[in-house]
Nucleic acid binder design. Structure first.
Lengths: 119, 119
DNA sequence: TTAGTATATTCATAACTTCGCATGTACTCA
DNA sequence: TGAGTACATGCGAAGTTATGAATATACTAA
């Protein structure tokens, strides 16, 4: 197996890892919330309405893939998207979503929030 | 909860599903192989060097999300990427990969094909 | 019809992901 | 020092995904 093939395999595994890291609604919401700049974890928690340990775990996933970076300021930890190209990726997918809206309606139906009902 | 919020949630779930579908090296290789047009399943099998049932299962994942479309011609089934915007997404990630190459070298090490890690 | 080729599906098992809960760490301020 | 805040980590249950092996379906050609 030559070195070029191996490089391409590595690149595919890399892409797959990035996709995997982005493959969760909460993590996508995190990226979107950070679109215009950094925010402290506490602010994300308030915006996304998720439990603190859960948010922290999702942030850990994004950190592990270097999708977000963080800096500590006193008591708080500010998070930011490392590379805006990921925002572009999300924007492309919004376009994709819109241009196939009719065809994906069925899919959306099956994507209803799991077992959630009026409280 | 208002309708706009609900729509945004749906969009995020949709994006997450697309990312999940793309989150596998073999499926990424499929998309890349189809970059310049449709190919029959048999050709994909030869290119990717995977077992036939395995390829078929990955194609089923991509079909379920309408990422690829297929048409039957006699004995064979031709597959094509439905929307070239997904090719653009992969290209963006290649850019991303290249611009962070140094920083992701460590990550690449951990991404070696399973079971080749040293203690 | 039968044999052969191309592709899809089913099944079992193993590996991974997600969540809530409990706990741990790090920092601030009195 | 101690109490409080902000965030991270470890754990176990439940659910999801990936794989190879076996089998099924669909089409072609003789």
């Amino acid at each position: 197996m030559n070195i070029l093939t191996r490089m391409q395999d590595a690149l595919r595994r890399f892409k797959a890892q990035i996709f995997q890291a982005l493959a969760h609604p909460t993590r996508i919401a995190i990226i979107e919330a950070l679109r215009d700049g950094e925010l402290p974890s506490s602010r994300l928690m308030a915006l996304l309405k998720v439990e603190q340990p859960n948010l922290s775990q999702h942030l850990a996933v994004l950190r592990a893939k270097h999708i977000v970076v963080n800096r500590k300021v006193g008591n708080q930890v500010y998070y930011a998207v490392r590379d805006p190209v990921l925002i572009d990726v999300l924007d492309l997918l919004r376009k994709y979503f819109n241009s196939h809206l009719a065809e994906t309606k069925a899919m959306l139906g099956e994507m209803a929030p799991r077992g959630r009902r009026r409280p």
